[in-house]
Nucleic acid binder design. Structure first.
Length: 308
DNA sequence: TGACGCCCACATACCCCAGG
DNA sequence: CCTGGGGTATGTGGGCGTCA
């Protein structure tokens, strides 16, 4: 069976878009150029890879098989490129990262600084929730992941690279704003907006309240930091979030921090990978960069406001 | 409701160019 | 000169809107 990488590249694009025209546009070709290559590929294979029904095209069984094989073939080529780059000693190639949503408030600044140092690195970034990040970590889909809490039961190497102070936030007109040393017991009397079960912030709040034999009220549960912030600004209650997610709201005065005893709770951001994973040179370089420079860069861009 | 025309997407024919 | 990979021009056929 004779087929070229060129043909497989075009096939993969057509299969992804399910359109010859869009695949051609993506690859800066004309549609006939793509059609011809696919025809030749089908000739080599001896079976049609696409079937046309009306104006739409679909993968045939053979097409689906080839598409699955393409995943392996191109992943292997990517790995080959990375190892060849390593042999040359140059820091370039693909860096695949997954980041939990909350970390997206500050990670773009780190990526920008890293790419300024290593412009030949191509970053493939996936911003998603904690569950998806863990799933991608288990399936070895990324070089590194960035998250707030690394599960202890997994075989994972993790590295603290940044403090994540959890602070108590309230709307500016709230009666506790500007009060000093508010006891946790007093805070517990307020309506509190909490993140969903499984969130690292929720876990930290529960531990803090439990240490004082207090029960965390969970009537108002919201699924994201953005929803929490909107809820607090709307006057639904107070809440606890990482201070890194509040830079804009604090700067514009739409949210105030409360001086609650025991707060800020200090948690950490981690960069992590599976223990057995052999990091590429690019990934190792990024990891070193995060450990050596992240704190300084974030402090410069987002200096954290003192409470009161 | 059927005829018509337009648009979109893919196929085919033919040509050009670079490299071996 | 042959071959592979690209181009343009044009053909074909289905979807869809319009209008009598």
């Amino acid at each position: 069976m004779y087929m070229t990488l060129r043909q497989l590249t075009l096939f993969k694009a057509v299969a992804q878009h399910l359109s010859f025209t869009r695949a051609a546009a993506e690859l800066c070709l004309t549609q006939p150029a793509v059609s011809i290559q696919i025809k030749q590929l089908e000739g080599h294979i001896g079976m049609p890879l696409f079937e046309q029904i009306g104006k739409r095209i679909f993968l045939t069984e053979a097409g689906r098989e080839l598409y699955a094989a393409c995943g392996d073939i191109f992943a292997r080529i990517e790995a080959l490129e990375t190892s060849l780059n390593e042999l040359q000693g140059s820091i370039k190639g693909l860096l695949k990262l997954s980041v939990v949503t909350n970390a997206s408030y500050f990670t773009p600044h780190l990526f920008k600084a890293f790419l300024r140092l290593y412009p030949d690195v191509h970053l493939r970034l996936n911003v998603t929730n904690r569950t998806n990040v863990l799933e991608r970590l288990v399936n070895n889909e990324d070089d590194l992941v960035i998250m707030g809490q690394v599960p202890e039961q997994m075989h994972v190497e993790s590295y603290q690279f940044l403090e994540s102070p959890l602070v108590v936030l309230a709307p500016p007109q709230h009666s506790l704003v500007n009060q000093a040393h508010i006891p946790l017991v007093r805070l517990a009397q307020e309506p509190i907006l909490v993140r969903e079960v499984g969130s690292g912030t929720r876990l930290a709040m529960e531990r803090c309240f439990a240490a004082y034999d207090l029960e965390l009220p969970t009537e108002m549960e919201l699924g994201s930091s953005e929803a929490i912030k909107q809820g607090v600004m709307a006057g639904l209650g107070v809440s606890v979030l990482s201070q890194h997610t509040l830079i804009l709201e604090l700067a514009t005065g739409k949210i105030k921090l409360l001086d609650v005893e025991e707060f800020p709770l200090i948690r950490y951001w981690y960069v992590a990978h599976l223990s057995e994973k052999k990091l590429s040179l690019v990934a190792r370089t990024f990891l070193d960069f995060m450990l050596s420079s992240a704190k300084e860069i974030i402090q410069k861009i987002h200096p954290l406001q003192e409470i009161n």
